[in-house]
């Protein structure tokens, strides 16, 4: 009797949070997809997609992929090194862990402003430094490669701490005995890394990829400040118009589709390899 009533109380307690998320996340998402197939005057149509395509072409999709892939590569490479460092016992580890976490707290837009000042073509600190070491200044926003470099550097500065945290949790979950055994067998540091650390981290890598990958597709504030080319987010924002929101809905729907495809791929990968922990 009490048990039955308890479980109803439990459902009642969860209900507000679930309704909230359904009403303010799922419903608007479905609405955006639905509206993207309607024009301001008239019925079902692909007009909005044709419109978006005629203005921007395919380059926002391509740029979003390039930014996501390169930012993830940089963040995972650095985070793997940082997490290996922090997984070893040494004096001052707590202080370094706190220090490495600081960028996580710095607002995205503040990070954007800082890197904007570092990589200004005129009056930027990067060019000041290049001059001091006797090299030519670079027009950072002038080419595709340098703008990409600036954007992923800024983004990685801010977001590597989260990846590090997750990978560190994975590394501390690996039994030290595995390493001791490998050392007895004469495995070097690289062998230990590729044969023990990486395979045991697969599940955690999948989680970090999921969390970061999805935010990477959504990179927005920094791109507005630092990146002169269009991404799916900045494209959607530039289409946004309260009078006729339909083209922006089309942009938002394309973005949503890519995020969901990415999530599905990671989930499949995790399903295959991620059962180990």
């Amino acid at each position: 009797m009490t048990k039955w009533r308890d479980s109803w109380t439990a459902y009642l307690m969860i209900l507000p949070a679930v309704i909230y998320v359904l009403y303010l996340a799922f419903y608007p998402a479905v609405d955006a997809v639905y509206q993207s197939f309607y024009a301001l005057h008239g019925g079902l149509t692909l007009y909005n997609y044709d419109f978006v395509n005629s203005i921007f072409g395919k380059s926002p999709i391509y740029n979003t992929f390039v930014v996501t892939a390169s930012a993830l590569a940089l963040q995972f490479a650095v985070a793997l090194i940082l997490a290996s460092l922090l997984s070893k016992p040494f004096k001052g580890r707590a202080a370094f862990s706190a220090l490495f976490l600081i960028p996580f707290g710095v607002a995205t837009i503040v990070t954007g402003v800082i890197f904007h000042n570092i990589f200004s073509t005129y009056g930027g600190y990067a060019n000041s430094f290049l001059r001091v070491i006797g090299m030519h200044p670079v027009n950072w926003t002038g080419s595709y490669i340098t703008s990409l470099f600036v954007l992923i550097l800024a983004d990685s500065w801010k977001n590597t701490p989260i990846v590090t945290l997750i990978l560190l949790a994975g590394m501390t979950s690996i039994s030290p005995n595995l390493y001791n055994q490998a050392m007895v067998d004469g495995a070097g540091i690289f062998q230990r890394f590729f044969r023990i650390t990486l395979p045991n981290l697969k599940g955690f890598i999948a989680i970090a990829l999921m969390i970061r990958g999805i935010s990477e597709f959504n990179i927005f504030a920094m791109a507005l400040l630092l990146y002169p080319y269009q991404l799916l987010t900045t494209m959607t924002y530039s289409l946004y118009d309260t009078v006729n929101a339909h083209p922006a809905y089309a942009g938002g729907t394309i973005l949503l589709a890519f995020v969901l495809i990415f999530a599905a791929i990671i989930m499949t990968y995790r399903g295959k390899y991620g059962r180990g922990y």
């Binding site: 679930v18 359904l22 998402a29 959607t236 809905y249 729907t253 973005l255």
Partner: peptide, 22 residues
Amino acid sequence: IIGVLFFSTMIPSITIAIPISE
């Protein structure tokens, strides 16, 4: 339920911000 909640965090802010603004 946790899966539903987690799924909601995947929906891009900019996609839903526009219908929410309306």
